[in-house]
């Protein structure tokens, strides 16, 4: 979608949010372009469903618009707040799924591997996403935020509302399970023995 970037990339989230609250249309556009992808990435990897991830990203952004007038710059990072809201919205969705007996995650993880000849990098990413969906939810959150989003352990602790040691434990257990799931597919996915 063509949207003019009227505000520079180095304008802080805090500043943009204040300008949004003041009614600046350019700030709305800049925040939409900057933060919607963040919410969508996390939601997609937590839910394993593109349509649901879009709904969650939209809802998370709507909540951001609504809290903008009350936002206190410098108290918390906007991105941390958005990660937390997105993770919580995903948790609600997953809980509802369990409530109606849908375990799409397991189905994805147990799917038959694609033929070796067709596997390219996209398939490697897809293999990881499928494996992620087989992890317990908390481990998946920690691994996604740490190793795909690249956040620090203290920031993840803040987002998940737990201690740093708990984050480390969740991440280590999550990676252990992922490695067990994916180790057998490394050769098939073209990684060889490096």
């Amino acid at each position: 979608m063509a949207m003019a970037f009227d505000l520079t990339d180095d304008t802080s989230d805090d500043d943009l949010l204040a300008r949004f609250a003041a009614g600046e249309a350019a700030a709305a556009r800049a925040l939409t372009l900057r933060l919607t992808p963040v919410a969508l990435r996390v939601a997609q990897r937590m839910l394993g469903d593109a349509a649901e991830a879009e709904d969650v990203a939209q809802e998370a952004m709507l909540r951001l618009w609504r809290i903008a007038p009350d936002w206190r710059p410098g108290v918390a990072r906007v991105s941390t707040w958005l990660y937390r809201v997105t993770v919580n919205l995903c948790t609600d969705r997953l809980r509802r799924r369990r409530g109606v007996g849908l375990e799409a995650a397991g189905e994805v993880a147990d799917g038959a591997p694609a033929p070796v000849s067709t596997l390219i990098e996209a398939d490697r990413a897809a293999a990881l996403e499928a494996a992620l969906m087989s992890l317990p939810e908390r481990q998946r959150q920690a691994v996604v935020l740490r190793h795909i989003e690249g956040l620090s352990n203290p920031e993840i602790a803040d987002i998940l509302g737990i201690g740093v040691e708990a984050v480390e434990s969740l991440t280590a257990r999550g990676k252990r399970a992922l490695a067990a799931l994916l180790a057998g597919r490394r050769e098939e996915l073209g990684y060889g023995d490096d």
């Binding site: 990897r45 996403e129 494996a131 190793h147 795909i148 490695a179 180790a183 490096d194």
Partner: peptide, 9 residues
């Protein structure tokens, strides 16, 4: 084992 997968993602 995992880093190549994380990098791809």
């Amino acid at each position: 084992v995992l880093e190549p997968f994380f990098a791809a993602a």
